[in-house]
């Protein structure tokens, strides 16, 4: 039995689309339990060749557990999983030989230099020394670390370590690169450099599967993504389709003086937007036309201290689907 999103939540009625071309990853009703705790609860999805596929979700939604199962370092406890057409339980080593993995924690070898990290990782994949050295130098250029080749790993910045970890994941020329929160904790420059490299990889035909809780990252990188919440998939589609389905075209954000803030059921707000959300600091009006809604508010005698019209983003979809409650 395939159990999908819970009945009351948006995204209900979503059915996984399974492409006819051999998928790189195919999961049906995939589950992971640790004792009585369910980390992944019967999820189904597929990743097509050449695709950049994202798992978007708050902390603890089950993204990393799913990634570890795909990476064949965590046996599923239920359902079916095929990676590159093989069964992780039987062909784990063979699958891992063809995957690139960028884990959440860098796990670089601190006892080796930057270049040695890559060369030795290549050896783990049975590359010859000559081949491994050649690839190491090529990849150091690719991630712009050639000038640090002989340095220790420890003093590198977070962004550099991340780039080195990505280079390490590419040393076996994988068909599929798994990235678990690739840019978490990086500064904007480092993030953009990483995105650029990942985009190039994608253009070279490397398929990407990544997890993130950054909406801009998902919008930038993913052709298709699933939103995970509480161990389940609650929505699936392209970033644009998800925004179209779960949000309006525009969002009007208004701020009122504390004593002049209308409540959610204030008659002056009625019918102004398709959906209204009153937050402690601002009020969000989801509408097709933000300017028109702002004019309507003004006509009804509401005088916000600040007004902003913006396009809806994946963030709106995400918060709609997974709620505003803090999870950690």
């Amino acid at each position: 039995m395939i159990s999908l999103a819970g009945g009351s939540r948006p995204g209900d009625g979503y059915h996984p689309q399974v492409t006819t071309a051999d998928p790189l990853v195919l999961a049906r009703d995939l589950s992971k339990r640790f004792g009585s705790f369910t980390a992944v609860d019967g999820i189904s999805f597929s990743v097509a060749p050449g695709e950049a596929f994202g798992f978007l979700g708050p902390n603890g939604a089950g993204k990393s557990s799913t990634m570890r199962m795909i990476g064949c370092v965590s046996p599923p406890t239920g359902g079916e999983l095929r990676v590159l057409g093989m069964d992780p339980a039987r062909d784990g080593a063979r699958i891992r030989a063809l995957l690139g993995v960028v884990p959440q924690q860098d796990s670089l070898d601190m006892e080796l230099t930057v270049r040695e990290n890559l060369i030795l990782y290549g050896r783990y994949f049975d590359l010859s020394y000559r081949e491994s050295r050649a690839r190491a130098d090529e990849l150091l250029d690719f991630v712009q670390l050639a000038d640090r080749a002989g340095d220790e790993v420890e003093p590198l910045s977070g962004g550099m370590k991340r780039r080195l970890t990505i280079a390490r994941g590419l040393v076996n020329r994988p068909r599929l690169l798994l990235l678990d929160e690739p840019t978490t904790g990086l500064d904007p420059q480092a993030r953009h450099l990483l995105w650029d490299r990942l985009y190039r990889l994608k253009q070279d035909g490397v398929s990407l599967v990544l997890t993130t809780h950054y909406m801009d990252e998902a919008e930038q990188l993913c052709d298709r993504l699933v939103v995970m919440d509480k161990a389940r998939i609650v929505a699936e589609g392209s970033p644009r389709a998800l925004i179209a389905e779960h949000a309006t075209r525009e969002v009007l954000e208004v701020r009122f003086a504390p004593d002049a803030r209308p409540a959610e059921d204030d008659p002056r707000l009625a019918g102004v937007a398709e959906r209204i959300e009153v937050l402690p600091d601002r009020t969000l009006l989801y509408t097709q036309d933000g300017e028109a809604a702002a004019v309507t508010l003004h006509d009804r005698g509401l005088r916000p201290v600040a007004t902003l019209v913006r396009r809806s983003s994946l963030e709106d979809v995400f918060l709609r689907l997974t709620g505003r409650t803090l999870v950690d």
Binding site: A93, R96, A97, L99, P103, S107, L108, Y124, F125, D126
Partner: peptide, 8 residues
């Protein structure tokens, strides 16, 4: 962790 992501 890194080693086990390879065929080892």
């Amino acid at each position: 962790d890194a080693v086990l992501a390879t065929p080892l």
